[in-house]
Computed example of a mutant assay.
Amino acid sequence: MFGKEVHAHVMKSGWLSSVFVGSALVDLYAKLSFVTNAKMMFDEIPVKNSVCANALLSGYCEAKLWAESLELVRLMPTLKLDYDHFTLSAMLRACAGLSATEFGRQVHAYLIRKFNEVENDVFMQSSLIEMYGKCGSMLKALHVFNLAGYRTGAERNKDVVLWTSMLGVCGRNGHFKDLENEMPEQAHGTYIY
Score class of each variant (00 low, 15 high):
residue 19 V to Y: 09
residue 131 M to N: 05
residue 6 V to D: 03
residue 166 M to D: 03
residue 173 N to D: 10
residue 54 N to C: 00
residue 17 S to V: 13
residue 128 L to S: 03
residue 40 M to D: 12
residue 73 V to Q: 04
residue 130 E to P: 03
residue 11 M to T: 09
residue 99 S to K: 12
residue 192 I to M: 15
residue 107 V to S: 02
residue 148 A to E: 09
residue 80 K to V: 10
residue 64 K to T: 00
residue 142 L to G: 01
residue 52 C to Q: 02
residue 66 W to R: 04
residue 90 A to Q: 03
residue 45 I to C: 07
residue 38 A to D: 05
residue 173 N to F: 11
residue 134 K to S: 00
residue 140 K to I: 13
residue 118 V to L: 05
residue 179 L to A: 04
residue 57 L to Y: 07
residue 116 N to H: 15
residue 168 G to I: 00
residue 128 L to P: 06
residue 125 Q to S: 04
residue 143 H to D: 14
residue 125 Q to H: 02
residue 53 A to G: 00
residue 127 S to H: 06
residue 46 P to Q: 08
residue 20 F to P: 02
residue 90 A to W: 01
residue 69 S to L: 07
residue 24 A to M: 12
residue 178 D to N: 11
residue 167 L to M: 12
residue 138 M to I: 13
residue 118 V to M: 08
residue 134 K to M: 05
residue 184 P to L: 04
residue 155 E to H: 14
residue 33 S to T: 10
residue 118 V to H: 06
residue 51 V to C: 10
residue 108 H to Y: 07
residue 144 V to Q: 01
residue 131 M to W: 04
residue 133 G to Y: 05
residue 89 S to N: 07
residue 35 V to L: 04
residue 154 A to I: 14
residue 92 L to A: 09
residue 158 K to Y: 02
residue 93 R to Q: 12
residue 120 N to G: 14
residue 139 L to N: 14
residue 160 V to D: 10
residue 153 G to K: 09
residue 64 K to A: 10
residue 174 G to D: 08
residue 177 K to F: 13
residue 144 V to I: 08
residue 57 L to K: 05
residue 81 L to M: 10
residue 173 N to G: 05
residue 144 V to C: 05
residue 190 T to M: 15
residue 27 D to I: 07
residue 50 S to Q: 07
residue 52 C to F: 03
residue 180 E to F: 14
residue 171 G to V: 00
residue 54 N to H: 02
residue 103 F to N: 02
residue 180 E to W: 14
residue 176 F to C: 14
residue 35 V to G: 06
residue 107 V to M: 01
residue 171 G to W: 11
residue 92 L to G: 00
residue 88 L to K: 09
residue 167 L to I: 10
residue 121 D to M: 08
residue 187 A to H: 14
residue 12 K to E: 07
residue 124 M to A: 08
